[in-house]
Structure formats: structure tokens, C-alpha cells
Amino acid sequence: MGLDIRVPLGLIFLITGGIMSLYGIFTRGNVALYEKSMGVNLNLGWGLVMFIFGMIMFIVGRRQKWQDDPVTPRPWERGKGH
């Protein structure tokens, strides 16, 4: 298929991770908010992890040429012509 799954996968992690880390930065000093997670700012920490993962996926997905696109024949269509 002409769409490399790593591109949308990378994007959703970039956006979600980005939202979470930004929110984490703005709520850094909020002790009451992070009481639930035992004082750990999960939004900032985990948001960054997700952001980095998303970036790697997105870059790899954009670089790699996906083997199949709508114009070239599919595996089962190949072989017929030649």
C-alpha cells in the first residue's frame, strides 16, 4: 500500500507526546496535580519519550521507500506481464 504506516504512527506520537510534554512543562510546579503519580511529572517525562519515539518513526518512515504504490504492480500482478 502506498502509505507507510510509520508516517501516521510517527505523527500521532509526535502530536500526543508533544501535547503531553507541553502540558507537563506548564504544570511543572503543580504539586497537587502530580500527587496521584507520586510526585512524578508523568506528562513531561513520558510525553518526551513518546515524542522521541514518534520522531524516529516519522523520519524512518519518510526515508524508506515503501515497496508498493498504486502505479506499480502488486506482488500477485507481477509475473503476469513478464
Partner: peptide
């Protein structure tokens, strides 16, 4: 609900 503050809670529910 017990451990996640708002923000990452959205991720958990997702």
C-alpha cells in the same frame, strides 16, 4: 484513575 494525573490520563483512556 488512581495513578494518572490529567494529561496522561487521556492517553491511558485512549
Amino acid at each position: 484513575l488512581h495513578f494518572f494525573p490529567t494529561g496522561i490520563l487521556g492517553l491511558g483512556l485512549t
